[in-house]
Amino acid sequence: MIDLIAALLMAVAAVTSIVFTYLAVVEKNLIQAVVFSAVQSTMYALIYFLLMAPDIVLVYLPVGVGIYPAIILLLIKKTDKVDE
């Protein structure tokens, strides 16, 4: 039963990550795109946890949810705010 729940959660997180990847790619407002990309990273972190990779979760949470959005927000602040 527990393996079924884990697989179900994994599939739901994977499907949600598709939605947020698509939104991050097509969104014109770059700040919103970064937020969508961060949500997609959170989904990936959940999938890594359920794929039994605790090391990857520990390295991916600070990198994918903490540092990536921070530096890309810095970049957006200094360059264009809107995609063409």
């Binding site: 090391d55 979760v57 520990l58 921070a70």
Partner: peptide
């Protein structure tokens, strides 16, 4: 689970 890469990335978040 843990190690140099994970701990280093966590400390870098404090800098951010």
């Amino acid at each position: 689970p843990g190690g140099g890469f994970q701990g280093g990335a966590t400390i870098a978040v404090a800098t951010v």
